[in-house]
Design a protein around this nucleic acid. Sequence first.
DNA 1: ATCCTCCCCTAC
DNA 2: TAAGGTAGGGGAGGAT
Length: 910
Amino acid sequence: MCERILEGRKRKTKNEEDEAMGFADFGGYFESKKAKLVDQFKETAGNTNVKSNIFKGIAIFVNGLTNPNSAELKKLMAEHGGVYHGYQMSSTTHIIASNLAYAKTKNLGSVPIVKASWITDSIELRKLLDYKRYILFSNQSAAQPKLNFPILPGGENDIAKETEKDSLGSVKTVSSSPEIEKSRITKTASDPKFLEEFYNNSRLHLIATMGAEFKQLVGQLREKSDGKFLGKELLLSKGNPSSKRTYSSVVMHIDMDCFFVSVGLRNRPELKGKPVAVTHARNGQISSVRPGRSAEIAMNLERAPENIVEKISNLDSHSSMSEIACCSYEARKCGIKNGMFLGTAVKLCPGLKTIQYDFQGYKEVASTLYKTVASYTLDIEAVSCDEMYVDVTKLLNDCGVVVDQFATHLRAEIMEKTGCPCSTGFGANKLQARLATKKAKPNGQFYLEVDDVETYFSEIPLGDLPGVGRATLSKLKNLGLVTCGDVQVSSLSILQSELGQKVGETLMEQAKGIDKKPLNFHHERKSVSAEINYGIRFKTLEESYNFLQSLSQEVFNRLNDIGMKAKCLTLKLMVRSADAPTETAKFLGHGICDSLSKSITSNVAITDVKTIFKEAKQLYDKFNVPFEDLRGVGIQLSKLEKIGPTSSVMSNFLKQNSVINENKVTVDVIPSNDVGVMKNKQEVKQESVSVKNDSKKNSINTLNKKETKSKRGRPAGTKTKAKGNVKSKTSPSPMLDKYLKNMGTPVKTNFQNIDMGVLYELPEELRNEIMKEYQLQHQVITKKSGEREIQVADVKPQPSELKQKIEEKKSPFDGLSWEELKPILKTWMTSEADPKEIDVEMISEHFRQLAIDRKIENLKVIFNFLHRTFEKLNCKWHNAYFSIVNTTQQGMVARYGGTLMVERRFSCCK
DNA sequence: ATCCTCCCCTAC
DNA sequence: TAAGGTAGGGGAGGAT
């Protein structure tokens, strides 16, 4: 069914609307921008009958070589209501060019320079597309923001802004090499907007996030279900409960047929029955050769696994490496597969049509699909946006319909409501149902009855089993096993020794059609992550830190959205392999890489961005990877725990306030186990304290107003920088004494942080002792402003006795009753003139935890007491009180979704 | 034995 | 040009 490129001459008749619009010829044209057809097109270029008006108001001037060339563009403009200028005039609205050098060197005023594909794509889609997506180079200056050409509705004119950004960028850069020019129009991860833009265009991101959303949706629907099922009621009226067959267990697997294509074809009916693929690129060929492509291909051929080799074997220097997200069954007949590069696919099937992504459409159809199924039963296990398992046993028995009747009924309904075909498979368990679907596809249904299971499975190729992918398949092939039948009669122990204990066992069961896993209607998240392995090209260390920060924010938002906190953070990096070419075969791809990961586990959960960034950065620094070789970055949070429901107001508040603003950091690493060196650093720190005090007036005040917002859940023992008071260095606080007595030192398990500020609060002797015992290393972070501060110390594994102690006692006040705590607090308040930040934090943290642990009986009493006592002290103490209250309220909000009523005023302040 | 970390594999 | 994400299962091998 492949439509060959040369068949363009005897083009098939389009639908009537197309004929009337005069578009009959364009399908053929756009099948290729290849020379042969371009020539053919030229022959007919004489007649200029107007076919549409899409370029009304547009006047183009074509510079240099373009594809299609200027003569063709002239004709196209004439046919579609536009104007063609032989040279640039004041009324020229767009310049069409493909040569970047031209765009750079010419000063053409405020006319956008746009790729020719803007014209061709607009014609193909029969509407004027937003030219901004086709800009080759923007030469408008911020001083000339006015546009004298039509702007499409919805598209904000951000050209001026872009240019401004460009000029800012060039201020920073000393020279203006071609690479830098290119990077201006190329969004890499160095661009602050990259993350958003990438996610808006990533199919894999969409698949992953939609899958998670529908799993969550099913859970929610089940919780608030009223037990009424409209679809079921209708089915009941059609069924015949008296002459029913009773089923013992029927699982339905339902899967949309080539989902993305089906959704896309709803608006392109003329492409039905043709080989169609969904891709970002429009053409199988790219105009310029990518440097390094041949080198990467050669390297892959040498060492990559079979499937990678297969994927690149047909590529040449001009093939598009845009991936096919989904292709139609007609395309599959030519050997095209999902995930294949467009360049490769076009070689297999030159008539392949490409259609654009329709992310909104996917969401709508998926939503309708779920809604439809949910009108029959909520015994649904969501697999992804277009696939689910449904336990229909009860439904069938209740309604008195047989499997086939139900399948026909449901599939017709889905087709009617979504306009997209689906297939359904039925069996006694998930595995059987899934493999039944395989036979049902496309657009069909199949019930694998119990008696047929053994025979059916014996013929199934092993690669069809869920969980058997490339690697497993190749191992099995080496064992001489090809079908499930082969595995059925092979030895379990051999399978297990080759594949592993569990995998071997599961495989043996699967081969026989056995699946012990029940349907999972309630899904519990075990991890949250965000990773980007595309567009990572850092030019400075700072850029890489900034990206890590954006990613921290992203992953925090996701954690926050599901109302959880995490005890484990993993940083994943993809790094260019030692001998891999610097230029990747694929534009902004990751190329040949090594994958690395490191994780950190703490005994107190992470609940804020700041900590996420801090930990991620620490791990990143530990890898010590040259930032230029970085090709991928990911942050994963695991060991999740639920936090109580947070009100939406509070949630938004926390999100806003958790954004890290200190985004300009450079690093000056001083690794050392030498206490002597640390002494020197002490002096550095004193300097930094004085700077800080100058700029921030009152440290407690700062703590109260800003910092506590992002300090939720700071791990015990990870104290913040000591900002105050050089004097305190010589006299340790009684609270710290108490703390040290209970905790040993404020450290976490494994490689955790000690804040150097805390150490400098200690008497020198004690400090040296601690540092010796824990073999401290530390880094000095220098801020751009010139401020210096010591951030963290790295701790080697500690004596196990101490570790145990720490695990037993999270807070120094843990387990103390109010009666026991009260005198301690009293002593604290009378021991010093001013409160110490570290003490305030410890107490705040303790009360926050009390709130979270629902131990609130005493909190009101405590706050009354605190308020009464603090009233007699100075305003620094009052601020300390506010800080304690604020932190505790965060715990209240997290736990109960509301705050505790406490006194928030003192007569002397505010 | 059992746990943990760093992977690898798989699916959509 | 191109948008190579994300979650879960599980194995190897070291630490306890």
